[in-house]
Design a protein around this nucleic acid. Sequence first.
RNA 1: GCCGGGGUGGCGAAAUUGGUAGACGCACAGGACUUAAAAUCCUGGGUUCCGAAAGGGACGUACCGGUUCGAUUCCGGUCCUCGGCACCA
Length: 897
Amino acid sequence: MANPWTCHISCRRWPLEGLIVGFGSVRFRCKAIETLASSAVLCYALRMPSEHQETTAQSRQSDRHYDHAGIESKWQKRWTDHKTWEAKIDATRPKYYLLDMFPYPSGRLHMGHVRNYTLGDVIARWRRSEGRNVMHPMGWDAFGLPAENAAIKNKLHPEKWTLENIQNMKKQLERLGLGYDWSREVTTCLPDYYKWEQLIFTQMFERGLAYKKASTVNWCPSCATVLANEQVQDGKCWRCESVTTTRELEQWFLKTTQYVEELLQGLDTLEGWPERVKSMQRHWIGKSEGAEIEFSLERGGSVRIFTTRPDTLFGVTYMAVAPEHPLAVTLSREKPQQAEVDAFIEKCRKQDKIARTAEDAPKEGVFTGAFAIHPLTEAKVPVYVANFVLMEYGTGALMAVPAHDQRDHSFARKYGVEIREVITPNEGNSAPPVTEAAFVDAGVLIHSGRFDGMDSEKAKSAITSELEKQGKGRKGVNYKLRDWGLSRQRYWGAPIPIIYCGSCGAVPVPAQQLPVVLPKDVSFSGEGGSPLAKHPDFTQTACPKCGAKDARRETDTMDTFMESSWYYLRYLSAQESSRPFNPEDAAYWLGVDQYIGGIEHATMHLLYFRFYHKVLRDLGYFPASIAEQDRNEPVRNLMNQGIVYKDGAKMSKSKGNVVEPDGIIAQYGADTARLFSMFAAPPEKVLEWAEQGVEGSSRFLNRVWRLVENHEAVIKGIKPFAGKHSDLVLESSKKLRSKTHQTIAKVIQDFTHGYRFNTAIAAIMELVNEIYVFPLDLGLPESRAVLREAIESVLRLMNPFAPHVAEELWERMGQPDWLVNLPHLKADEEALIKETITYVVQVNGKLRGNIQVPAAETQEGVVELAKDDHKVAPHLEGKTVARTIFVQGKLVNFVVK
RNA sequence: GCCGGGGUGGCGAAAUUGGUAGACGCACAGGACUUAAAAUCCUGGGUUCCGAAAGGGACGUACCGGUUCGAUUCCGGUCCUCGGCACCA
């Protein structure tokens, strides 16, 4: 057996305890390597004489890797101490309001947050380097269901749970080196935030924008409580697994539909918004034009319907109403069909709406026994209750034209209703007979009385005018957008500031009595509805209007989208105690220059957000000095970063596939976490989480660190090259300097054209690789100056991504200023000029060679050189060049026969 | 189902308006350094066929088809996948 050796191990991941003893020349036991056999452990060992065992039996930080923990906390402290991120109104600089979608305080950050917020921080640092007065706040979307679920499960008060989570997550954000103006922090579950939301609600109420109506909720009969959609899994309650049903409750709504046209048309003014988001919002609003038609009922009364196809009116052979429609019940009263209809309605109530209305879902319905009268032919039309009709869309009733609508067609065939063809395809078109499938395109009218022979377009207006003349219909517009239902029968939300009085009705809580504070002394069981309703001190109150003692408070709380609809305004004046925000602050900072958040918010949040802004404008909150566009729309530029997902689904606590950044920060540092999240994929793309690449980002930062360390001696006291590029003597100097300035230009371009940070980082990596192979000429001063310039450029370019390392190395190079306070670099145009150009030569579109030509070469000259190229010539031999395609600066293509 | 995205090597990706497909990085392989291992530095890799080799041919951006001298890029269709669908936020 060979002699035992004691190894001194330094390892930056695993502080080792005790001795690691090796035998023989090759194999030694290293705990760290065993522990992480699959990944490369940055670890090395020095052989030591065995008598030194005791003194070497300790771990020490590797001197081959920079001390990320030390420098990160050092710079974070410096930035904080100097109030680097605190933004103040400054009329001398252009302002830049950068807004990140604030997180729900679920407990810990996940990599989706890291990506989102790093993106924001990189942009903030960049805009700052452009000389802008950047305001970049952060806060907490602190009300919501998970806190209440946690309270039920862990017997912990939602407030305690939430506030503790906030403390945790704030520390995590700070450790990432994210530069937020914490003096503007908002926490939406605190009364000094929701007080203003309640005030705004009462103002909406007074304007008639908030109203009550009956609406359906999920109901668990066993827990006797309302369930959120998320709490219903496969039609069963999440707690007790009872089959859920639905209930009608009187609920508060906001009239988003009052702003529907503006919400739609405003999209056209949002040039800085991604097309995909605008498109989704347009479809969500879902405007369609057509006609509203009144069908009278045989037994009196009438049904109003909306159709986009009044041209098919003569093809109507039945009508259908939604199961929730009041007529569904009344039409069948005292008829043989009554029992069947009631059973059907009950069945639909239990069905999921998306499944119920899916195109391939079975079309089901029952005849009500009642008939309607066709407005023009006066024929009797049977009325059905059908599962594919939605109460929320249109009028909750429809005229069915089986010949020209596929859904109506399937239903008609199933129930044996007549299919009457009234549109025939235009000449040249053919279609299967309507007994087989509906013909849904426009065409020419037949069997439609005096409208026969008209094309669909013309018939639409002709039939609508005829109806209008007879008082049976009119032109109509319909939208899919519905009013915003904002009542929640839950505890952890902002109380709706309404008091019900026996004589005065619903009375808003007067401003001086706000906030209506959420009481803390409640208990959670998950059963029997909201704890607020069981809190007598809260519910019993006096009427603010008449003083009656027996008034009671509204116990519903507000949808949490209410908080996230105006937080960007509270950031403006987070300390303001007499109003939601200060108009002077709004005048300076609005609108939001860049809003960043996940694409999953494309419709709901971003639509509510826009709606709220318009309402506040109409409530007179914005001073006249705000530009028209910013008065109408909250956000100028929107960026939706792609979802970070793992195991095929969005990272979320409920799915249990969350990856937290803490491990990465501890092992590699915040700069690595930041750099990797920016390098792994372009910002808008979905990112499937895989940790393999993290190592590479860490390696790069260490490579930069060594770059400075290794060259410290030769560039110390040297000034970066400042002369004329053409005066450089050495080819190597010219080459490196060109690369330096190409990189600067590339990074600037990637920042200004769509925040393409992944390629910007790749370019910096290329420059670093180039510096590594640079043949330094110690005899020539220009060589050192060019090297210094290159290294300085690397630090300045990488600063937004990895600010701690960049600042530390910058300081180490003897620079007095902090990078965070410096303007960004500009490329030297002269260094970008290319002396030779590479032309690609193709024959019949296939690559056959490439040639180097002087930049000044003429087209004729390039073509001649291309023909003569030794790789190209054989492909041209014995053939005729029929055509020569020349693309300036790029390629020559010979089309030969 | 409806609405909006996405699909390129073993993997993350790149290719500014149609013009060298695969930059940069991961993983892997080889070399240098080391008694050794790790780290570091350098080099190589789309697939396939011919060649001992320098080199050369064919194919290749989910699939099928079209436009074009030329298509990852434009057009039509198909498949798969992700996000949203109004009480998760």
